[in-house]
């Protein structure tokens, strides 16, 4: 199908900081997500990636609110749903059944005094469609099936309290729980952060397998560019609350066009191959309360000119490809940006 499963237009999210004050954490976000795609939102701390991820499901904490824009989903039955116009009850039905979220920090996402099995039972019963009865046996069958797909032993895990499981097991159980109602879209916030290397690898492999099996569309938020390279079809780089570049994973990693994206890629340390001399991006990200005029990256950018200090350019499409796999960048000097080292050469070794 050619129309996107999720369309975001000009989305802005702000956090109230006082009676009449607020800071804008995300602004001007346009995003189209197509069925079966996996999109990575990458960026450094404070760039707004988690805020955007939460915003996609209207799950913002108390002080956060969507101040403008639109969020349109295509439901399983093909109808369109405007998330911003939904009432509380509609929203509750929409979440988990149509789009689900795996929160950051698997350690704390479960209720510590409720067994894993009861988490499944609660979820399935609470979101049951049109009076469907979830008996104990039905819950166990469904939960068991889900846990087995993430290679956990249902007999043990369903009877366990969260603290009885290791971090990796909790993360896998959490992913299984998130897909319990067969959502079309799964948003994962830092799915492998705080897990050990070998556990990270098994989560990555499981996500590959789950996507193959269930075919859900995936948005994941990460600061780990390695994870993005591993899991994403498409990558969107965020800086100071805006998406500044988006493209296929190969676009972003081999031919980044925004100086910030190139800077990030240049700063990532590879484990295989030679040890390259790496360069950091000078300076620090701006505070949300004191955004520079023009392009937010201009104070740290080697290419910045007077023009960059005056105005900010929108995302410009460089290469159009089907299914929104086009490469877009928000930088006037994009034709000057080059990676320092050629990653392509490493890739072929």
């Amino acid at each position: 199908m050619t129309d996107p499963i999720l369309s975001v237009r000009d989305l802005a999210i702000a956090y109230r900081t006082g009676r009449k004050e607020s800071v804008t954490a995300v602004s001007g976000v346009d995003l189209d997500l197509y069925e079966g795609q996996s999109l990575a939102l990458v960026g450094e701390s404070g760039c707004g990636k988690t805020t955007l991820g939460l915003g996609l499901l209207r799950l913002l904490p108390g002080l956060g609110e969507i101040t403008s824009g639109s969020l349109t989903y295509r439901r399983k039955d093909g109808t369109r749903a405007d998330l911003l116009k939904m009432k509380k009850e509609q929203l509750r039905r929409f979440r988990w059944g149509e789009a689900a979220m795996v929160f950051q920090g698997a350690m704390n996402a479960f209720n510590p005094v409720i067994k894993i099995g009861d988490h499944f039972a609660d979820t399935l019963r609470d979101h049951a469609e049109n009076g469907k009865r979830w008996t104990k046996a039905a819950v166990e069958a469904r939960a068991g099936e889900l846990l087995e797909t993430v290679r956990l032993d249902p007999d043990r895990v369903l009877q366990s309290y969260p603290h009885e499981l290791s971090g990796g097991m909790k993360q896998r159980a959490l992913i299984a729980l998130a897909i319990a109602l067969d959502p079309q879209v799964l948003v994962l916030d830092e799915p492998t952060t705080a897990l050990d290397l070998l556990t990270q690898r098994s989560i990555v492999q499981q996500l590959h397998e789950l996507r193959k099996k269930f075919g859900f569309t995936m948005v994941f938020i990460t600061h780990d560019l390695g994870l993005a390279a591993e899991l994403a079809d498409r990558v969107a780089t965020m800086y100071a609350g805006r998406i500044i570049e988006t493209g296929s994973a190969r676009d972003i990693f081999y031919t980044p066009k925004h100086p910030y994206t190139a800077g990030l890629i240049n700063a990532v340390m590879p484990v295989k191959g030679e040890r390259p001399a790496l360069e950091s991006i000078p300076g620090y990200p701006p505070s949300l309360k004191a955004m520079p005029d023009g392009c937010a990256f201009n104070p740290r950018c080697a290419f910045a000119t007077e023009e960059c200090k005056r105005e900010r350019v929108p995302l410009e499409l460089l290469a159009e490809r089907p299914l929104a796999m086009g490469h877009s960048v928000a930088c006037v000097h994009h034709d000057q940006v080059r990676l320092q080292r050629k990653q392509k050469e490493n890739a072929n070794v």
Partner: peptide
């Protein structure tokens, strides 16, 4: 197990 920052 390392995720390399290189899609290929």
């Amino acid at each position: 197990a390392v995720c390399e920052p290189d899609p290929d």
